[in-house]
């Protein structure tokens, strides 16, 4: 199972970085989104992959790591998802504004010469 998830992270990262290095703004946005999936999964996986473990405590009892999933990476990733959404939106608007201002969607605001 670890193999599948790490391969998945690898594929997402590779696609994301490939797009990140492209010259069109839309490609960069999609690339960043893919990359953030990969990073979120990676952070999530640092807690160990647990199938069928309980996520919610039984009322009145303190939990132990034996029965429950590790909540810390989950809390981190939850925060990261929300922040990632916000920054994607901001990037989108900045790129749209740049496109309106420069007339091109090249990342540097001008077409490459030659």
């Amino acid at each position: 199972m670890e193999l599948v998830v790490s391969l998945a992270i690898g594929v997402l990262t590779g696609s994301g970085i490939w797009l990140l290095l492209r010259s069109r703004t839309f490609q960069v946005i999609i690339g960043l989104s893919l990359l953030s999936y990969a990073v979120n999964l990676f952070i999530f996986s640092t807690g160990g992959l647990r199938t069928g473990a309980a996520a919610i405590l039984a009322r009145g009892q303190p939990g132990t790591l034996g029965e429950f999933t590790d909540p810390v990476p989950q809390a981190l990733v939850l925060t990261a998802i929300v922040i990632g959404f916000a920054t994607t939106a901001l990037l989108l608007v900045v790129l749209l504004a740049a496109r309106g201002l420069t007339g091109t969607d090249q990342v540097d605001g001008r077409e490459r010469e030659g």
Partner: peptide
Amino acid sequence: GAGGGLAALSY
């Protein structure tokens, strides 16, 4: 390289 590296790292 980056994808393979991160895959190896996460594994």
